[in-house]
Design a protein around this nucleic acid. Structure first.
Length: 634
RNA sequence: GCCGACGUAGCUCAAUUGGCAGAGCAGCUGACUUGUAAUCAGCAGGUUGCGGGUUCGAGUCCCAUCGUCGGCUCCA
């Protein structure tokens, strides 16, 4: 017998070899209907898993993230089977679950077209109706290799070859289809209730552009039709917050054919940007930063020295001046090095924190451009911190604090990644190890959870990245803290130590917003265009009811402008409702309706963007309120 | 850069098998003088992304190119 402890604390005895499914049957009820897989002693298994020792068993449903994962994973197998049935010469890549869905990669002579998705979807529904069981079995390595080689599955063969010698090679049979798969899976295809194929895309095999490009089909699935509909509805809603759409509607910025990846900021967008920069300067002054500005174009020699010529040339723009080669800066660091080098620094002066709102240009691949999120010219809210090696951890911690402080003003949630040595890197392994563990220690000491991003560091050092979400849940790297022992060497910068000798300082490159353009885009989506008052391009619009209230409207306007409040008066001969509708669509935080009543009493009728009509206030009182709101950035 | 889809008025979208490029909103002009999300009427607005080709005739078909969108890759 084996002793099984269930999630609710109950302990029961079962004969050895009892399957989890048998336990689920016995438990009955809703769980029996919803059970997908089970976590047995911490490992997720099929319901058909046979218990051969005492175990803690937790039955998982779609509500558990592991359950959801398996649900989508099985859905991807159904997709693969459907494609196999409908298309002759198909080789399979991989088909994992992803956030909110799944995909499968296919190598198929025929090019899938959007109407194929409907066909495939229908076939998937058929497979679901057939309620085919997914059966797990193991193959010995050479058998597995032969099996997949015989069936022409060259990608699967490659996957098996990549597995460690002692790996258990498992496969799942689903109807006439056998796939190499670690599992686990749902007991049968009928468990999948609502499935929808969403899009078609090319994807390199194993993510490398050296490999052939496969056709990827994305989809999602849910245990209830209503959940699928809700999800699709949510996607539609999210699209309404897309910063590209709002940027046009709110007249914030444009990107035109004449400058792909080179955004044009309109007056209203510029107001927001300036507010962000003002805020940035305040916070950085408070933390002991100075500010510099370095040129956009500098001599090629500088870039050879910095290592950019060797490591970053493909991303740079070049030009010639007086028959000499110059480069448009893709990063601000070399300029900062030049500034630091202009004078002697004592160890007593360190750390030196030098900020720069620096405009950089990078030649990004055309296919990667995306609104303001990925562009070819952007302003980094950069800073370089020159410090004693002993100050590294303190300074990194201070930057983390500053970043957190700034993100909190906007109410952002973010996740942190630690990126390690890339293939194409400068500096010794020891240097990288020391720098990487310094970053890791700071994160660990501050109890900040992070994921490791292997090989994703900058060419000169490891980094901590801060990622923010866009409206449809894609994350974008914004803040980053990069440790650099290379640049100080290359530029031979130094400080004079206590001993009167020259020493090499360590350098941190860091940004908080990251790119002001990208941060702006994330902000637009985060607020859905309804910016807090301090950021709103127009903070108040005055709406006179008829022409005879224009004089009072102008008085109110003058009073607001005198207090530095961004206000406009809508003097068009339109109805109040019309002007309000327009102000609402422009997401202006306050509308002041003024008519006879207000003109007489010196009040304003306040309509708040989301709360609606909130009644009349003396003008002075309104001004005091809005000023407080602006100052608090609330 | 690669794979796929798509480019029609400032915006959102129509245009039968290839057969006179159209509507709403926005804009302009006028009337209306309005109390919390669209007053009415009129006017104007286009080398259908750009360049070739097929055809009696191309927004529609073909080629090329630029751009956009969704991914891949890359990255702030």
């Amino acid at each position: 017998m084996v002793v099984v402890s269930l999630a609710n604390g109950a302990k029961r005895e079962y004969p050895r070899g009892t399957r989890v499914a048998d336990i689920v049957d016995e438990l009955g009820g809703r769980l029996k209907k919803e059970a997908l897989v089970a976590r047995v002693n911490g490992v997720v298994h099929d319901l058909s898993y046979a218990l051969d020792e005492d175990a803690e068993v937790c039955i998982l449903t779609f509500n558990d993230s592991d359950g959801e994962d398996v649900y989508r994973h099985t859905s991807s197998h159904i997709l693969a089977l459907a494609v196999k049935r409908l298309f002759g010469d198909v080789k399979l890549g991989i088909g994992p679950s992803i956030k909110d869905g799944f995909y499968y990669d296919f190598d198929c002579k025929e090019t899938f077209v959007p109407t194929d998705l409907e066909r495939i979807e229908k076939e998937m529904e058929k497979i679901i109706k057939e309620d085919l069981p997914l059966e797990r079995f193991e193959l010995e390595r050479t058998h597995a290799l032969k099996f997949f080689a015989d069936s022409g599955e060259i990608y699967k063969v490659e996957l098996i070859e990549g597995l460690p010698e002692d790996a258990v090679i498992s496969c799942y049979r689903c109807g006439e289809f056998v796939d190499l798969c670690a599992g686990p899976h749902l007991p049968s295809t009928g468990k999948v209730k609502a499935v929808k194929l969403l899009s078609l895309a090319g994807a390199y095999w194993r993510g490398s552009e050296k490999n052939p490009m496969l056709q990827r089909i994305y989809g999602t699935s849910f245990p209830k039709k209503s959940m699928l509909e809700e999800y699709l509805h949510r996607l539609e809603e999210a699209k309404k917050r897309d910063h590209r759409k709002l940027g046009r509607e709110l007249d914030l910025f444009s990107i035109q054919d004449e400058g792909p990846g080179f955004p044009l900021l309109h007056p209203r967008g510029m107001i927001i940007r300036n507010e962000l920069e003002n805020f940035w300067r305040e916070e950085h002054r408070r933390d002991g930063y100075s500010e510099i500005k370095t040129p956009i174009i500098l001599n090629r020699v500088l870039w050879e020295r910095s290592g950019h010529w060797d490591h970053y040339k493909e991303n740079m723009y070049f030009t010639q001046i007086d028959e000499q080669d110059f480069a448009v800066k893709p990063m601000n660091c070399p300029g900062a090095m030049l500034v630091f080098r202009t004078k002697m620094h004592s160890y007593r002066d360190l750390p030196v924190r030098m900020g720069e709102l620096g405009l950089v240009h990078r030649h990004e691949l055309s296919g990667t451009l995306h609104g303001l999120m990925r562009v070819r010219a952007f302003t980094q809210d950069d800073a370089h911190i020159f410090m004693l090696p002993s100050q590294i951890k303190d300074e990194v911690a201070k930057v983390i604090e500053l970043t957190d402080r700034i993100y909190n003003v906007f109410g952002f949630e973010y996740h942190v990644e630690l990126s390690t040595r890339p293939e194409k890197a400068m500096g010794s392994q020891e240097m990288w190890d020391a720098a990487t563990s310094a970053l890791r220690e700071v994160l660990e000491e501050r109890n900040i959870s992070f994921v490791i991003n292997e090989g994703d560091g900058a060419f000169y050092g490891p980094k901590i990245d801060f990622h923010l979400k866009d409206s449809i849940g894609r994350t974008w790297q914004c803040g980053t803290i990069q440790l650099d022992f290379q640049m100080p060497e290359k530029f031979d910068i130094s400080y004079v130590g206590e001993d009167g000798q020259k020493h090499r300082p360590a350098v941190i490159h860091r940004v908080v917003f990251g790119s002001i353009e990208r941060f702006f885009a994330v902000l637009i989506e985060h607020y859905a265009g309804a910016f807090p008052v301090w950021l709103s391009p127009v903070q108040t619009v005055i709406i006179p009811i008829t022409d005879r209230h224009h004089e009072y409207a102008n008085q109110v306007l003058a009073a607001l402008e005198k207090e530095g409040i961004r206000a406009e008066a809508d003097l068009r001969s339109e109805k109040v409702g019309y002007k309000i509708r327009e102000a609402q669509l422009q997401k202006i935080p306050y509308m002041l309706v003024v008519g006879d009543k207000e003109a007489e009493s010196g009040e304003v009728g306040v309509r708040e963007r989301s709360a609606g009509d909130v009644g009349s206030l003396p003008l002075d009182q309104f001004i005091a309120n809005i000023k407080e709101e602006i100052n608090n950035k609330s």
